[in-house]
Every structure is written in structure tokens, then in C-alpha cells.
Nucleic acid binder design. Structure first.
Lengths: 339, 339
DNA sequence: TTGTACGCGTTATCAG
DNA sequence: CTGATAACGCGTACAA
């Protein structure tokens, strides 16, 4: 293993090789105007020869900016965190800002620990990603760096939180089904204790009401976020309401269960019943039979926005409140117009 | 947003408040013995009052250690990276070492970029996680910090790589099926261009050979890593070899496809046909019908080991070659002894 | 145009 | 036991 090959080449080494002072070397490398072109060239060449890379820690000491941010998550599977992280990485620019990823695993103690470590590392800002889209405790108001809450909003309205538009998503799903000519639409979703479940249902009901319609089956089928519940609920639904022509599932997992039972019952999707999911969890949605139309959470965009808001806050442009970001419909084959 | 509340409280502030010099304050806080107990108490109290947290950047400047490592991945979905990251975080201890997560998205240029940034940040080491378990290009031998390749081995034998035991996994799967009394075992797997597919098949064939058996269906069914292929292959298999009593799938995705078709054909799992997957991709395996017995890759353990090897390397104990880490069987309900 | 000197926050080495 | 003082690597007024 090629460890410790060229150890710690500093600006001094570069300056020495180029025959100039450290100050000049610094200016040359940082593109400062007050340096002769020929000199700059010599310095740059020396730096390349030694494959010099400036010590960001030292730079940070001076500029009071570490060029790092912390991403604090409790999302074990990284299902939400990763897209958000990628979006943030994208917006920051990889050579400007690097991201510390810390997983608190839903443990408040561990979270405190990570927080201390990150502050000690002088991160310029913090993005907190919750495991579920419900309110979570604020990190507090007296932190030395700005904090953005993503996905799960903070319980302190003085914080800035970025959330996905679950109500809008519910509307979007139902709207799409209506456009496909469906009128007997059912909604099977997860744990009613989740704000997201309530919001998605609300959006669906609102849109339906605008058409003077109500839910097939009479009510929202709340249950659990699992395939098994999707299957169970679908069986009950078909029993009670055999003429249903569309099912809006509150998650892609549930939608998979729905599809399974429809398939078992030899009910064709989408010609007889259209199915739409929520989350766009790739491995589930794209591999479904048929591939699943679903509501994409736009998490990368959420990550990008979080990065932008954080940059703004680092420049002093604080803001607060809850900002709701749009979701979007991703059409695959499980929905289609009625012939 | 409570940004910039207490900005940059330094050791000087603490010292001033405690009425001592910075030197003494430093010693007191770092548990150095040569300091009076009463003085130490005063300093500690002052530090708490100001909620002082030492500037790791400055510390790193002196100790020549940043207390950070870079995790360089190309694994978009984070499916492998995340467990590895968590294992590594675990082994490092969150207050000792923080992890920079960088996603190169399979792009060599972006990888170079990230690498430069990480070296500039003076990471103490690097963990490189490949997107697929096949050889990947080495980062090179002349890096100033140790590198561990995880999941995907480096093509340079001088590097240290940690990989999962795919051959052993194949053996394990077949061994389990044999113990369940199955004798007509088929193997449906993914892209033959993947070393992992070849290795898993090899392990399976070897174990079978030890019993004087060969594969049901006569050959390994190579194809793609998708549910659709799992379905297609299973249909062909049942056609050619209707008396099969066990199917070893090369991935959980494929296994899901297998289960789907068996269910369609009203073939009971596990009483008629046992099914075993590979990867233990939670959302697929645990939600399957029935829940899927599978080979767990032990990725957290791999992450922990990577961290340990990296620590050792940072202390000068370099090593090289490919280290193969054991996988383990996770029994659920899709396999059971024949009555 | 270039170099000198100082400081960023911390630790370590010495005197006192 | 405590306190100057010198690093660590770099950026930047200021002087030359």
C-alpha cells in the first residue's frame, strides 16, 4: 500500500523550489493580480512538480470557513438521505464544500455526540434529515452555525425546514387518475400516525371533492407501510367495492402489495384498475409488474435547495418557517386512460 | 434561525474567564497531570459556561492528523455504501473520526475531483467502495494516505481490498438447501459478466459436486439482475424441469421474480419448492411472500473491518492483497425441511 | 512586483 | 504548578 509516499508538501516547499517567498507563492497560486506572469508560471510549475495541494485546514483557520457541512440523519437505510446528500453535494460543488455524513440511528444521545463533533470540526452549516416526514425536535436556537431541516420539519417555527408537498402529491395522484377517466378511486395508505399519510389523503380527498366525488370504498384505508397491508387492504376493498377502477397507494411498498393481489385476481392493470404509488422507490417501482406510476419526491432537488438555503444563511441571509417543495408525477405503465 | 449566536469562542476566551494562560487552559482541558485540581476545575467550568468546543482544525494542524477519513463511492443508491459507512463510523467512534461521504456517480473525472478535495482536506485515510463486486482501477500507489478498497477490489495487488465471500455464499446457500433435504436444486442468477455471479455459481456447483449432484435444469441460468429475469427464467425452468424442489437465486431481486411465478403457478413455497436469495436487501427480502431466506453480505462488518485496517495502516501497519470476509445465512420462511 | 511580518487556534517545550 | 514562546500551513496588510 502506497502510504506516506509524498508526505506533507507545503507551500514552503513550493516557494523554495520556485525561488520565491511563501507570500508570493500564495498569491501566484490564488490568482492574485499583483504577480508577474513569468513568476506565476514558475510557481505553478513547482506546485505541479510536487503535486502540492493546499492544506484546507490551515486555510480554514484563517478564513474562518472550513468549507464543510454536516449532514445529520436518522434514516438507517439512507433511502431519503442519499438523494438529498447527492443534491446537496451537487449544489455545493465538490471542490468548494465537502459533506460529513453522520447517522444518529434514531438515538438522541448519538445525535448530540455527532453534533458536538461536527461543531468541533467547525462545519459551516448543518442539514438535518429526519427519518420520517413528521415534525422532529429542533437542535436548538443557540448554535453557532445555520441549520436547515430537510424532509422532517423542526418543531421550532424559528428554524427553516424544507419538506415535500404531500398534500400536493395526493392531489397530483388523484388528478392523474381522473384524467385517465377513472371515477371510482380508492386510497390505501400507511400508518395514520404519520403526518405524511394524513396529508396525502387530504390532498386526494380535496381533489376528489372538487369533482363532486368521494372515495371508492367510502373511506381511506389506513394501515401500515408494508406490502402485506397493501395486499390485505386490496382484498377487503375488492370485496366491498368490486367495481373500483383505480387505487392510489400511499407508498410504493403498499402499491406492490396492491398489484400482487390484482394480479392474483386476474384483474388487469391498468386496463381494469389503474394503480399509482408514492415515493418512486426505484427498486420497487421500476421492477413492479407492470412498472409503477408513482409520485416522485424530488429529493435531489430538495437537497439542492437545502444547500442553497444553507449557503444563503451562511452569508447572513437567514430565513425561517416551513418551505414546501413540489413533488412530481412519474408515469409508467400502471396507469393509462380508459379506452 | 439562531445562526451566529455564540461565534467562535476560543481557548483564549476560556483562559481569560478562568484567569489563567492559554497554555494552562489547554493542559487543564486535555487532562494533563501537571495542573492543580482547583485550577482545572475553574477552567472546566469556564469552558462549560462558554460552551467551548476546541477547534479541530487547529488541533489537526499541530498533530498532523485531521481525524477524518474519506469514503469514496460510486454506488448511486447507497445500497452497499451505507451499511459499510455505518460499520466504519461504528468502528472509528464518532468523536474520534468523522467521515466525508463522496459519490463519484461512476464518473472517473468526478472521482479525481473528489480525491483532490479529500487530500486537500488532509483526510487520514480513504475507503473506496465500488458499485459492483468486481475489480476496479486502483487510485494509484503514490497517495499520501492509506487506502482500503471495500466491496470492489482494486486491480493492483499491492493495495488492500476487502471483499465479501461470494464463493462461500454460494456454498452456504446450497448447503442450506441440501440440509432441507432438497436434491433437485436450480440456480438462477444475473449478468454473467459479473465476477459475483460467477463466484456464487462456482460455490454452488462445488458444494453440489461434493454430494455427487449437478444442477437441476442442467446449467446455471445466467441473465440479468432483475425481477423480470427471475420470472422469465423460472417459467423456462418449470417447463424444462417441473420436478425442481429448490431454487437458489443470485440476488434478492431475482428471488422476488422467482417467488412471483411460483405463486402464479400455485406451487407452494417452501413445501414444494424452497427459494433462497442473496444480498439480504431488506425491503425486498423481508416483504417477500413468504419472507425470503437469503445470504446476508455482512456489510456492516465489512465496514468495521475496513475501519480497523485503515487505523492499522495509519499507524504504519500496512498490508496488501485481497481479504475475503465471510457472509452468513439469514433464515426466513422461504426455505424449510421437506416433510 | 516581491518579501516581511503577523495572526488564525491549538499544543508542546521550556523556563520560571 | 504555571506561563511565555514557538511552532503547524497559510493568507494578507504593509513595507520595500
Amino acid at each position: 500500500m502506497g502510504a506516506a509516499a509524498n508526505r506533507a508538501v507545503t507551500l514552503r516547499d513550493v516557494a523554495r523550489l520556485a525561488g520565491v517567498s511563501v507570500a508570493t507563492a500564495s498569491k501566484a497560486l490564488n490568482g492574485q493580480p499583483q504577480v508577474r506572469a513569468e513568476t506565476r508560471a514558475r510557481v505553478v510549475k513547482a506546485a505541479e512538480q510536487l503535486s502540492f495541494s493546499p492544506n484546507t485546514l490551515a486555510q480554514g483557520l484563517i478564513t474562518q470557513r472550513s468549507g464543510t457541512v454536516g449532514l445529520l440523519t436518522s434514516d438507517l437505510e439512507g433511502r431519503f438521505s442519499i438523494p438529498i446528500l447527492m443534491g446537496a453535494e451537487d449544489a455545493f460543488g465538490s471542490d468548494q464544500t465537502s459533506v460529513f455524513l453522520c447517522d444518529a440511528r434514531g438515538d438522541a444521545i448519538r445525535e448530540k455526540h455527532h453534533l458536538r463533533a461536527l461543531l468541533s470540526r467547525r462545519v459551516d452549516g448543518l442539514i438535518v434529515v429526519g427519518a420520517r416526514p413528521d415534525t422532529r425536535p429542533s437542535l436548538g436556537r443557540d448554535l453557532p452555525v445555520p441549520v436547515i431541516y430537510a424532509y422532517a420539519p423542526s418543531d421550532d417555527p424559528a428554524d427553516l425546514s424544507l419538506v415535500t408537498d404531500n398534500i400536493g402529491g395526493g392531489r397530483l395522484a388523484v388528478d392523474h387518475l381522473l384524467r385517465c377517466g377513472r371515477r371510482r378511486i380508492a386510497h390505501i395508505t400507511g400508518d395514520p400516525g404519520y403526518g405524511a399519510a394524513q396529508d396525502r389523503a387530504r390532498g386526494a380527498l380535496d381533489r376528489l371533492a372538487e369533482e363532486g366525488l368521494s372515495l371508492a370504498g367510502g373511506e381511506v384505508w389506513f394501515g401500515m407501510w408494508s406490502e402485506a397491508w397493501g395486499r390485505g387492504a386490496t382484498r377487503m376493498l375488492l370485496d366491498r367495492c368490486p367495481d373500483v377502477d383505480a387505487i392510489f397507494a400511499g407508498s410504493d411498498e403498499i402499491a406492490r402489495g396492491v398489484l400482487d393481489v390484482l394480479h392474483e385476481e386476474r384483474i388487469d392493470v391498468p386496463s381494469q384498475v389503474a394503480v399509482i404509488g408514492f415515493d418512486n422507490w426505484q427498486v420497487l417501482a421500476a421492477n413492479a409488474r407492470p412498472p409503477l406510476t408513482t409520485v416522485d419526491l424530488n429529493l435531489e432537488q430538495l437537497g439542492r435547495t437545502a444547500a442553497q438555503r444553507l449557503s444563503a444563511a451562511m452569508d447572513g441571509a437567514l430565513s425561517s418557517g416551513v418551505e414546501t417543495l413540489p413533488v412530481r408525477l412519474l408515469t409508467r405503465e400502471s396507469t393509462a386512460p380508459l379506452r
